[in-house]
Design a protein around this nucleic acid. Structure first.
Length: 239
DNA sequence: CCCTGATTCGC
DNA sequence: GCGAATCAGG
């Protein structure tokens, strides 16, 4: 697989959106988690709340000199790493049946990218796992503190009907996203029919009125673990 | 164990 | 430029 513009765009979107490298790799398909990370770095998108980089030593000089040069090839290592528990190399799950055209409405799951600054959902990288509502894929969103009013969705006004705007007669692709259109994902990235809602947004929200209703449903805490990323792209994919 | 991202380095 | 191997923290 090569890094086409689309794939790179997808990578950026997801990476910036908070999706993990694994999720990105899985959605892109045909690439490993490492490939995604490597590419991300080469693209300059680096650093994000990395679990392994929590420490802020004033002396960054602390590297792994001894462990570096040698480990690459285990030169004189007497015993090889018995535990080569490398997780399965993401088998590219390409949609085999394309001709049948599956309904994308099955289950919207992915994220919808970082919304406008005014978006009710804050994208704080260090935010606390306060979960109270569910987003696109069923993943949980942040707490009320980050969400302002629970739901000021659509007051009165004549709201955009369910008919698509003329400007978005066709599918709204990843690259067509803007502050004006609903970013609710339809289907999954990487799939042939993946696109975004594209409706006119509910002013102040990243989604249209209809999807705001789905995005901001309150859901009280439960046994639900999984702090969820701010804007998880690879939401619980329905498989 | 699992997960995460970071880094290195041979290709 | 790419990504597997590896490292290292949670």
């Amino acid at each position: 697989m090569s890094w086409t513009d689309e794939r790179i765009a997808m990578l950026k979107k997801m990476w910036e959106g908070g999706a993990t490298a694994s999720q990105i790799a899985e959605e892109l398909g045909g690439v490993s988690r490492n490939a995604v990370i490597g590419k991300a770095h080469r693209l300059g998108l680096k650093s994000r709340p990395s679990p392994v980089k929590a420490n802020d030593k004033k002396k960054p000089a602390a590297k792994k000199p001894a462990a570096k040069a040698a480990p690459a090839k285990k030169d004189a290592a007497p015993a090889k790493p018995a535990a080569k528990a490398e997780t399965k190399p993401a088998a590219s799950a390409e949609p085999a049946a394309q001709g049948s055209g599956k309904p994308a409405s099955s289950a919207a799951s992915q994220q919808a990218d970082a919304g406008p600054k005014a978006a009710p959902v804050q994208m704080d990288q260090q935010n606390l796992p306060k979960i109270v509502s569910v987003g696109p894929g069923g993943f949980l969103r942040q707490g009320p503190g980050d969400q302002q009013a629970p739901i000021p969705p659509a007051p009165p006004r004549r709201l955009v009907p369910a008919k698509p705007s003329p400007e978005i007669a066709d599918k709204t692709s990843l690259l067509d996203l803007s502050d004006k259109v609903c970013r609710w994902p339809m289907g999954h990235p990487g799939e042939p029919d993946f696109h975004f809602c594209g409706q006119q947004v509910n002013p102040g929200f990243p989604y249209c009125v209809e999807h705001c209703g789905r995005a901001y449903q309150a859901q009280l805490p439960r046994g639900s673990r999984k702090p969820p990323p701010p804007l998880p792209f690879g939401g619980p994919r329905v498989r």
